[in-house]
């Protein structure tokens, strides 16, 4: 590894850590998602990544789960349990994670 790439790595590491530091805390509501989808929605094994998910798409897919019009095992049972307002909070949060 060249000296330049080492510096670049150090810079990117510090940028990453400062970004992580600035990131708003996970809404309590979204904590439940970590049970399956990983700490920051990064996905786990066969379970989908939801970090960085497009906000509009998140809301649309949630609605499809709610109406049971999208193939699912358990999301179609979870989705009807949350209000539109709560879904917006989840969509905003997961869209905000890079």
């Amino acid at each position: 590894m060249t000296r330049f790439s080492l510096i670049a790595l150090a810079l990117s590491a510090s940028l990453l850590s400062s970004t992580a530091f600035a990131q708003q805390p996970t809404p309590l509501l979204a904590q439940a998602c970590a049970g399956c989808h990983g700490q920051s929605g990064e996905g786990e094994g066969a379970i989908a990544r939801i970090a960085g998910y497009d906000r509009e798409a998140f809301v649309k897919i949630w609605q499809e789960f709610r109406e049971n019009s999208r193939p699912a095992t358990i999301m179609n049972r979870i989705a009807p349990g949350y209000t539109d307002e709560e879904v917006q909070i989840l969509a905003d949060y997961f869209a905000s994670i890079q």
């Binding site: 399956c36 700490q39 094994g45």
Partner: peptide, 20 residues
């Protein structure tokens, strides 16, 4: 297929929640 998927999701759940 549903049962197979849920078994694999269960395994992923265990790994994810024990990390949490």
């Amino acid at each position: 297929e549903n049962r197979r998927l849920e078994a694999s999701y269960a395994d992923a759940w265990y790994d994810s929640i024990t990390r949490d």
